[in-house]
Deep mutational scan, measured.
Amino acid sequence: MGFKLLSKLLVYLTASIMAIASPLAFSVDSSGEYPTVSEIPVGEVRLYQIADGVWSHIATQSFDGAVYPSNGLIVRDGDELLLIDTAWGAKNTAALLAEIEKQIGLPVTRAVSTHFHDDRVGGVDVLRAAGVATYASPSTRRLAEVEGNEIPTHSLEGLSSSGDAVRFGPVELFYPGAAHSTDNLIVYVPSASVLYGGCAIYELSRTSAGNVADADLAEWPTSIERIQQHYPEAQFVIPGHGLPGGLDLLKHTTNVVKAHTNRSVVE
């Protein structure tokens, strides 16, 4: 069995187990497998329904001669939608809004960016022009300005110390501490036991640490421990890039980060 097929099978099995364990909360999309990078042309966006009122959005972007996937989250909030992270750029984010209108038909009224990198804030200006209120932590807003990236308009308070959590509509926002970046936030959907790890969490097929220019490698494993301790009931975990899975993604990420750190020390 090929690795790609095995990865998709694991996603399907995880979703099936969740649907059985929580039949009222989960209505997993039966329309197909989780979209992969090879299936999404740059400039297009796919939506994948995880649970009743919960979707991931998947886009792709060219970077350094390669094409990478990027995940975000959409959560229903009454007759409105909360968006977590842009679709990595203005063109993708405009396509995301169009796809949401086509498939869901509810307005996106608020959006949260989970850290300051372009795959999370690139497209904020498109959201703002569409009347979406954009939010991020003060740290993310400051770092985005320093980096020359787009800056969300509103500040999220109460997320300055490791372990801080605040309720934001249908989700809980959690600051686990520094990891992929010093400002990275985690998003949890309690009604569906869905954990969105953003770039602080890796997919299972990833074996290298990737972009760690703004990471705190020493603190990252401790931050992941905080996530595990705060959300032990999480059933569906979405990484910032690639295929979702279960809580095993947290341990896998820790292993990859520690291996990278150990290699760096040896070198």
Results as ranks from 00 to 15, higher is better:
160 S>R: 10
251 K>H: 03
142 R>V: 11
51 A>G: 11
165 A>G: 05
35 P>M: 07
221 P>R: 13
117 H>G: 00
121 V>N: 15
176 P>G: 05
74 I>W: 00
36 T>V: 11
195 L>F: 11
69 P>R: 08
48 Y>K: 06
225 E>T: 02
145 E>I: 08
248 D>L: 05
31 S>K: 14
212 V>M: 14
12 Y>M: 14
51 A>Q: 07
223 S>N: 02
137 S>R: 06
22 S>N: 07
165 A>Q: 10
257 V>Y: 12
66 A>H: 13
34 Y>K: 13
167 R>I: 06
64 D>C: 15
68 Y>E: 06
132 V>P: 01
172 E>W: 12
133 A>Y: 09
64 D>K: 14
158 G>T: 11
214 D>W: 09
64 D>V: 12
161 S>Y: 03
150 E>Q: 12
243 L>P: 05
247 L>T: 05
103 Q>Y: 03
38 S>Y: 15
92 N>L: 06
265 V>L: 05
10 L>Y: 08
212 V>N: 14
114 T>I: 00
22 S>P: 14
263 R>E: 11
253 T>C: 02
37 V>H: 03
22 S>Q: 04
162 S>H: 15
266 V>G: 12
223 S>Y: 02
164 D>K: 04
93 T>W: 00
49 Q>Y: 06
9 L>Y: 09
62 S>C: 06
78 G>Y: 11
238 I>N: 02
138 P>C: 12
216 D>R: 13
98 A>Y: 15
267 E>T: 10
105 G>T: 15
150 E>C: 14
189 V>L: 06
92 N>W: 11
35 P>F: 03
12 Y>S: 13
80 E>C: 12
85 D>M: 00
187 V>G: 07
129 A>K: 03
255 N>V: 13
155 S>Y: 12
164 D>N: 14
151 I>S: 10
128 R>A: 08
107 P>T: 13
239 P>I: 02
96 L>E: 02
83 L>R: 01
263 R>Y: 02
220 W>Y: 15
223 S>R: 03
119 D>S: 01
55 W>V: 13
262 N>C: 07
146 V>L: 09
85 D>A: 00
10 L>M: 13
253 T>N: 00
189 V>W: 03
235 Q>P: 13
174 F>K: 03
114 T>K: 01
124 V>G: 04
156 L>W: 12
167 R>T: 03
9 L>A: 08
220 W>G: 03
6 L>R: 05
202 Y>K: 08
33 E>W: 09
231 Y>H: 07
52 D>T: 04
111 A>S: 11
71 N>M: 06
73 L>N: 01
69 P>C: 03
214 D>H: 07
224 I>G: 09
92 N>M: 04
197 G>P: 10
1 M>N: 14
136 A>M: 07
197 G>E: 00
157 E>F: 13
42 V>G: 10
155 S>R: 09
93 T>C: 13
18 M>C: 02
91 K>D: 12
166 V>T: 04
30 S>K: 15
16 S>E: 07
108 V>F: 08
233 E>L: 11
31 S>P: 12
205 S>P: 09
142 R>W: 14
226 R>W: 08
179 A>E: 01
224 I>P: 00
39 E>H: 13
34 Y>T: 14
136 A>Y: 01
43 G>K: 06
32 G>R: 09
47 L>W: 02
92 N>H: 05
18 M>E: 04
174 F>S: 11
154 H>A: 11
23 P>D: 11
247 L>C: 15
136 A>E: 01
12 Y>I: 15
41 P>F: 04
102 K>V: 04
209 A>W: 10
156 L>E: 02
88 W>Y: 14
17 I>N: 02
132 V>N: 01
163 G>Q: 05
212 V>L: 11
159 L>G: 04
161 S>G: 11
181 S>T: 07
97 L>M: 07
97 L>P: 02
151 I>A: 06
100 I>T: 07
201 I>K: 01
73 L>F: 13
146 V>I: 12
212 V>P: 13
239 P>C: 02
55 W>T: 12
71 N>Q: 07
46 R>K: 12
173 L>P: 02
67 V>C: 13
151 I>F: 14
126 V>H: 06
60 T>W: 04
249 L>Q: 15
55 W>D: 01
5 L>E: 07
45 V>H: 03
4 K>A: 07
267 E>L: 08
25 A>E: 08
251 K>M: 05
212 V>D: 11
69 P>N: 15
143 L>S: 10
74 I>T: 13
20 I>Q: 00
70 S>E: 12
103 Q>G: 09
109 T>Y: 04
173 L>R: 00
63 F>R: 09
6 L>T: 11
116 F>P: 02
259 A>D: 09
117 H>W: 00
152 P>Q: 14
65 G>P: 11
234 A>S: 08
60 T>C: 09
237 V>H: 03
171 V>F: 04
33 E>S: 11
246 G>S: 04
61 Q>H: 04
35 P>L: 06
10 L>S: 09
77 D>I: 08
257 V>H: 08
144 A>E: 02
264 S>K: 04
250 L>A: 08
28 V>F: 14
76 R>N: 04
60 T>E: 03
244 P>A: 07
185 L>E: 00
180 H>F: 00
138 P>G: 14
38 S>M: 13
142 R>A: 13
267 E>W: 13
42 V>K: 07
168 F>I: 15
157 E>W: 13
266 V>L: 06
21 A>E: 09
80 E>M: 05
47 L>N: 02
201 I>L: 12
235 Q>C: 02
232 P>E: 04
207 T>A: 06
242 G>I: 01
26 F>H: 15
70 S>H: 10
110 R>L: 04
246 G>W: 07
108 V>S: 07
51 A>N: 15
178 A>L: 10
166 V>D: 13
74 I>M: 10
189 V>S: 04
113 S>N: 15
126 V>P: 05
227 I>V: 06
251 K>D: 14
238 I>G: 02
17 I>V: 04
48 Y>V: 09
108 V>H: 01
197 G>Q: 00
169 G>I: 02
241 H>C: 01
128 R>V: 09
13 L>R: 12
254 T>W: 08
45 V>Y: 02
94 A>I: 06
99 E>F: 15
177 G>C: 00
186 I>L: 10
94 A>W: 11
211 N>E: 10
141 R>C: 13
30 S>F: 13
169 G>A: 12
38 S>W: 06
9 L>Q: 05
18 M>W: 08
127 L>Q: 02
55 W>H: 14
184 N>R: 01
209 A>Q: 03
207 T>G: 08
36 T>A: 05
92 N>V: 10
231 Y>G: 01
231 Y>M: 15
81 L>T: 07
221 P>L: 13
225 E>N: 02
177 G>T: 00
206 R>K: 09
155 S>N: 13
162 S>Y: 05
68 Y>Q: 13
96 L>I: 14
252 H>D: 09
125 D>G: 09
69 P>D: 04
260 H>C: 10
119 D>G: 01
113 S>Y: 04
204 L>Y: 15
194 V>N: 00
146 V>G: 08
14 T>P: 09
150 E>S: 15
145 E>F: 06
59 A>P: 02
251 K>A: 06
169 G>R: 08
157 E>Q: 08
